[in-house]
Design a protein around this nucleic acid. Sequence first.
DNA 1: TTGTACGCGTTATCAT
DNA 2: ATGATAACGCGTACAA
Lengths: 329, 329
Amino acid sequence: MATTIKDVAQYTGLSIATISKYINGGNVLEDNRKRIGEAIEVLDYKVNYAARSLKTNKTMTVGILLPSLFTPFFSLICAYIEPLLKSHGYSMIVCSYHDDPIEEISKLKFLQALSIDGIVAVPTTVTADELTALKIPVVLMDRNVPGLDSVVTDNINAVHDVVEELIIHGHRRIGIILGPPTVTTAYERKLGYERAFADYNLPIDESLIRIGEYDIATGYREMIELLNMKPLPTAVVVSSHDITVGAIMAAYERKLKIPDDIYFVGYDEEQITKVFNAPVTTVLQPLVEIAQSVTELLVKRMNGDYSGYPQLNRLKTTLLRHQPISKIE
Amino acid sequence: MATTIKDVAQYTGLSIATISKYINGGNVLEDNRKRIGEAIEVLDYKVNYAARSLKTNKTMTVGILLPSLFTPFFSLICAYIEPLLKSHGYSMIVCSYHDDPIEEISKLKFLQALSIDGIVAVPTTVTADELTALKIPVVLMDRNVPGLDSVVTDNINAVHDVVEELIIHGHRRIGIILGPPTVTTAYERKLGYERAFADYNLPIDESLIRIGEYDIATGYREMIELLNMKPLPTAVVVSSHDITVGAIMAAYERKLKIPDDIYFVGYDEEQITKVFNAPVTTVLQPLVEIAQSVTELLVKRMNGDYSGYPQLNRLKTTLLRHQPISKIE
DNA sequence: TTGTACGCGTTATCAT
DNA sequence: ATGATAACGCGTACAA
């Protein structure tokens, strides 16, 4: 059996109450502090977190619920969040629901059952009621559910601004490949596209708006569709890392030169676009700030501070201008 | 306060022992089973895992210790392992030590302190003694430490076989970019390179063996070095995802055509190489099988089955032949 | 098959 | 400042 607080008490001749106080930073005589410290060292005492949790109802563990771990956007977010949570003393349990609404809710219940202290969730179909019913602080990430704390990016303006720039440079036939409209990010990105055209009183060719999943297959398939159109779109904007990958695959397969044959705007993809000799202009979401904001907000909530609830934190994207936007006469 | 086993006992008029038995699959009268099931439903009873852990000394949680979460090889491994562990009832706590030996050991202690049931670790500098001192089942992944269970890939033959093929096709000046030789994978891959040359009684130009970290910067820097050589290497083999990315960046920056100007063999990189119109030949590690093997072995150990300890499971890589190996006369 | 009672290791209350 | 002790919720002898 591992050594317990009791052993330390016995070893030092003090009571377990004093040891507990020492551990939790209470007032203990300097002399005793030293003895306890030594005893802990000698006996190699470690706090039993299960026992502590039983008393405190805290597990110092946070659950991260993601649609997928296979796409860099989510795994990178994890990479950024992990040390931040750790700096507040929290461990991170990672759960993916594999883009499955049923697994989404079941994993949520699973996390609840673990009695973790908080949840960071990227929701797809789960509702505000289901989320609040958990009775655990939840901060949503990337996707918004009204009435709950969330940290998202300014999807509307992200797409609006780049499409507007394309319009200003004379582009009219601008293809866009979007995720499912049930996901808030896809809905908002579509809105950004539409608003840019509305701002300039331009008609929208609905066939240029391609909708699918946030995956490589969609990027490839819809890019092919766009490239089959006559006349060809002069520019294509995509809306996720995986869609970017698929779309570039399609463009290369068709021997299209970017940006000479078609102007292309990627999304959340740095690596591939860096590797090309003609790097691609790309919308980048602020991963670091998202991670910081989510962590900060969740920790605040877990500390019982519900000021400003529900809080919606919308962060700006940046545009990596690797290629001057081509002019259309 | 949440409802406890006690509440269920009271509600049903049975004792807590019976409820406990019901929960843990013991013998309970069919009639009582039904009543208990209903009571649990009505009262919305949930097991308190902290209390259970306190009794059983099991947390049903596994720690994953990685050098980094920023590189796809590790984050994908996580993606594959998570559902497998889940199917055995385990949650997964993810920890990265950011390629820092000090953090490596401290995170290991941290995981130990959490009293998780098992650890999957990708070690860099940690020793067998430090690992066994944890008194927790540990299965190493990707990198081997003698005397411990581990699941690795056959690094020697992975590199040997592709280099041999290059030699057979007439290549003599074959560059290779490796990770730090203190990491077993890099050491083994170097060995594979050397053995291939030894097999054919060919001398090795040591300046073609480039060593650095498993990161993009190394790939870029060392590829530039190789491309500055006269005469140019006729082929370059790299040894990690990130090195692949960096090396391709360098090649494209230098306007080199792959495989016309130089034959290139990537490692663990599917996406970028797929995106090219001339996809790159690539060594692929079997992520799925690694995940399966690691999970299986760790679960076995956590169940107390130490047969065959220490077990070294070496898995074969595959070679994605996207480009016929160029012939050198 | 079911019930009683104890202990797991900790925190927290209340005396001292 | 320190100590005795009662919970926290569960599993499990042991008894019935």
